[in-house]
Write a protein that binds this DNA or RNA. Structure first.
Lengths: 333, 333
DNA sequence: CGAAATCAGGTAAACGCTTTCATCGGACGG
DNA sequence: CCGTCCGATGAAAGCGTTTACCTGATTTCG
């Protein structure tokens, strides 16, 4: 591997000058610059990022830890963050925890070792000690979906209550009186919050709605299994609300392969409005969570640009219900 | 940020000793070790990866460049590679190019700067100069889907010809005589290879089958647009073969929203057998490409473990057709 | 019991950059 | 024509680890 020194020798200058050219900092005579660039090209020199980082160049890389890269929700946020980063000459490195608290911890440690510019933690699991560790590290952080704002951490939250209420209301108005909620296993907090939002929404119709809840892993397969279990209890919901679109794919499938028509026999709703939700059959009624915007917010919180008012530390996103074809009036028995 | 030195001071030893316990290399008395570990914990010390790397610790991180992280195919390979890496104490960093040759180049450069243990390039676009640059770098490389084997690069390939032939044969036997192929835009090579596989397969039925091909971006939306364009030409295929499952989602949707029933009116096939393909309605007939295995092969090629016979440099995977419900006998007019 | 090994741990030299700080020539103003 | 300033570049000090290499202190054994 080539080094700055070798490039310098080749160009007949000192390594300091090469560095200056490469980072266009300081004054360098055009002819010298040209000579250097040429040497760089000829030697196929690639700066050693570690040496750069160690030598104190301000970091240009952001970290991102997500729960499950197979769920498009996270990929979309990543994509948006990366795009913003790319636009400004930053990089981002992702890590996926698979909902394991253990892997989360080791990811955080590894990220801390990278001396990043900032870290975003977009997961559903998280224990308090990690939040503290992150806080003490003084590293700029963004939590999403879990965690809390701290002096160095912004917190982006999605309001679940209202859209959940709207959804239940909407289903109720369509005559649904037996509803089920399908969630996914996570480190309590987040799942419970969503389940609770569902239960709270039902409170408005105290007693007039029967309900059940089930949970499984965050995947279409999980959605299928949860649905299978749900129905095997004998409960016959006329509507199933899925904690997210990804799992909703599985509930759709399970329902359909059991011969239930959606939405004629059973209505289904999702959450997130991932691109896929528009392509299911029937297209999925869901709640639009603006991943693109969330990604941008994350970037702004981590790498505030010149003359840009730094956004608040506590941001809540209010998503809108998107009605498509997976919901319809309840079948009258 | 804490440093080795501070930990050493705190534990009353030299930094060399701290390094030794952290990497458990060399002999260190148990009591000393305990003292050090304690200091590490108390100070919340996190080793600086850059310093480690610079100081010559052998790299433990693998790189992976993919075309499109939104396509589950790539995510699956990434997941498998990461799992293998994790099992052996390695890390992997991904980068997505969005099918842009330019971003590919900059990704490669950035990866080269990271002084990785090895790099996997799983993309459909790639110009020859990059292959050369990679070759000259002497970095262990794995190409998939594109590129070629070189002294330091393994090459994992999926055999398209045979399964494509099988698929066409199968459709033909169901009475299909008007077929269309939907591909995606890429840096020529790869797309053409697939289109050609399709055309070659048709050669067996010289003249007895009408056909058309269309292409768009690699996404469900792309699949939808391509299908839309395809049908707007007036051509009425009884079967549409999609270059991959991801795009097939879009062709299914477009067909269905135009009132064509799948498979009664039109059959559809995909490629890859991503998990999603089992959850479409109807479930998709496709070709199973073993992403899990490919991920493992990549790992093995990049980080050959002790006493494991190093796999060949030129590996070809032979995928199998998976028949589900999106294909059926052609409608007799 | 003394010499040779073995152990534990310290010293200091890289590793490849960035970044002061110093230097060396002019260009300029008077 | 000389003193001043700049503008361009070089020298060298880190940055936080790893890793020979070396030094005392213990063991081991004949």
């Amino acid at each position: 591997m080539m080094t700055l020194e070798e490039v310098a020798r080749r160009a007949g200058v000192s390594s300091a000058t090469v560095s200056r050219v490469l980072n266009n900092a300081g004054k360098v005579r055009p002819t010298t610059r040209k000579r250097v660039l040429e040497a760089v090209r000829e030697l196929r020199y690639h700066p050693n990022v570690h040496a750069k980082a160690l030598a104190g160049a301000k970091s240009r890389t952001l970290g991102m830890i997500v729960s499950n890269l197979k769920n498009p929700y996270f990929v979309d946020i990543f994509g948006s963050l990366e795009a913003a980063a790319d636009r400004h000459g930053y990089e981002v490195v992702v890590e996926s925890t698979g909902y394991s608290t253990q892997r989360l911890a080791s990811s955080v440690r590894s990220m801390l070792g990278r001396r990043l510019l900032g870290l975003s933690v977009i997961v559903s699991e998280m224990d308090d000690s990690l939040i503290e560790e992150l806080t003490e590290s003084r590293l700029p952080v963004v939590f999403h979906d879990v965690g809390r704002a701290t002096p160095n951490a912004a917190h982006i939250t999605v309001d679940w209550e209202k859209p959940m209420q709207k959804t239940v209301e909407y289903l109720y108005s369509l005559g649904h009186r037996r509803m089920a909620f399908v969630g996914h296993h996570t480190g309590l907090a987040s799942l419970q919050a969503r389940r609770l939002a569902f239960l709270n929404a039902l409170d408005h119709y105290a007693g007039s709605v029967e309900f059940a809840t089930e949970a499984d892993v965050d995947s279409p397969e999980g959605g299928r299994m949860a649905t299978r279990r749900l129905l095997s209890t004998g409960f016959q919901p006329t509507a199933i609300l899925s904690v997210n679109d990804f799992m909703a794919l599985g509930v759709l499938r399970e329902l359909q392969s059991r011969g239930h028509r959606v939405p004629q026999d059973i209505s289904v709703t999702g959450f997130d409005n991932i691109n896929l939700s528009e392509f299911t059959n029937p297209p999925l009624t869901t709640v639009n969570v603006p991943r693109e915007r969330i990604g941008r917010l994350v970037f702004e919180a981590l790498a505030p640009q010149e003359g840009q008012r730094v956004s608040s530390h506590e941001i809540v996103v209010h998503p809108e219900v998107v009605i498509r074809d997976s919901t319809a009036p309840a079948k009258t028995p």
